[in-house]
Amino acid sequence: MTSPLRVGYVPEHFQSPLLQLAERDNGNTFVLVPCPSGTGQIMAAFANGEIDVSIALTESLLAGITKGQDSFKFIGTYIESPLNWAVITGANAPYNSIADLEGTRFGISRAGSGSEVMANVMALEQQWKKPPTFQINDNFAKLRQSVNDGDTSAFMWEWFTTLPYVKSGEVKFIGNQLTPWPSWSIVAGVTVDAAKLTTFVDSLDHAVRRFDQGRQSGEAVEFVHKTFGYDKEDVQKWIQGVTYSQQHLSTVKKSVITHTLDTLVNAHVIDQRDWDMHTYINTNVAKLE
């Protein structure tokens, strides 16, 4: 009997179609492997042979491959819309705007994570002369504690995930940063059978279309509300702003890859400019456009 795929994922609302698919699949073709620390943890899991496929942040995955991680490649696009990164500081911290954070120490989940990459992208867009420094805090709870203890000035995390903690007054929101590229991509281990991956992506594509249909009926809002505990009004706002890939999920656009890589070079995240698409994309599964 063929063993099920091990799917690493960040347990957040973006993964709702995947979670719904997992309920229907019941472990027959894949099992979920939670990676709550984010894309940095997912890349480590690939390197350690702990997962076969994952949905993670586009920019961190590309940076990881460029820096030499060869255990996974892109096989699809999950979400086309940007990710809205909230810039969060301590409830009583002296920082009141993004400009106040120049040259300070940011908390990040792991080296190479989206929280680190996007801080560098933000520094580029803000034209800071003094770049941020970083402290690894592992997970979301420790990041919140760190800004309130004063160990770090701020951290960056997805807006709707941070919203309940902003509402409660535990932390303070001082600005946001959008990714200038599609936010979530699908990647898989380089040794995983292409036919199994194609079947999985086809099933996930169907799950995404089903979730999108549920936007009109209210089923999608109800699922996210019950699963993650967010206020229905907040879920509705999130759903209105997110766009899952409008093409089949196996489609990867070369222009997206090169634009993201060029931005990462300019933000001093990576230093290479000679992009070979086959280094990044498994064309046995993905449709490169």
Score class of each variant (00 low, 15 high):
A220T: 00
S153Q: 03
V117M: 01
F200S: 00
W181C: 11
P182M: 14
A141E: 12
D151C: 10
W128N: 12
Q247F: 14
E170P: 08
V147W: 00
W184V: 06
K196G: 03
K226V: 15
H206C: 03
V171Y: 00
T243E: 13
D149H: 06
G218T: 12
Y165G: 03
V221Q: 02
E222I: 05
S217H: 07
T152I: 11
T133G: 12
P132W: 07
A154H: 01
V187C: 10
D212C: 10
V252W: 00
D138P: 07
G229M: 06
P180G: 11
L124I: 07
A194R: 12
Q127G: 13
V171D: 00
V256E: 13
L163F: 06
D202G: 14
E158P: 12
E222F: 04
L163N: 07
Q126A: 14
V147K: 00
F134C: 02
V187M: 03
E158W: 08
S113R: 03
Q135K: 09
F223Q: 05
F134K: 00
V147S: 00
E222R: 11
E233F: 04
K167L: 14
Y244N: 01
D212T: 15
T258F: 01
N148F: 06
H225L: 05
Q135R: 05
T227E: 01
Q177R: 13
A207R: 07
N148K: 09
N120G: 03
H248T: 14
K232L: 13
M156K: 02
M156Y: 04
A154N: 03
L197H: 02
V235L: 00
D193F: 12
M118Q: 04
K237G: 02
Y230C: 08
A123K: 06
T227F: 00
N139H: 07
N139E: 06
P180I: 08
G114D: 09
E222D: 13
S255T: 12
D193H: 13
T243R: 14
P182I: 03
W238T: 03
W159K: 11
R215A: 09
G114P: 05
S217D: 12
I239A: 01
K167H: 13
G214T: 00
K232W: 06
N120T: 13
Q177Y: 09
K129W: 11
Q127S: 15
R209N: 14
G218W: 09
W159N: 07
W184E: 08
T179A: 05
T161Y: 10
W128H: 11
P164N: 10
Q247D: 15
S153L: 01
S183E: 06
D138S: 14
F140D: 02
K237F: 09
N176V: 01
G114T: 06
F223T: 12
R215L: 08
E219S: 03
Q126F: 12
V192F: 06
V166W: 06
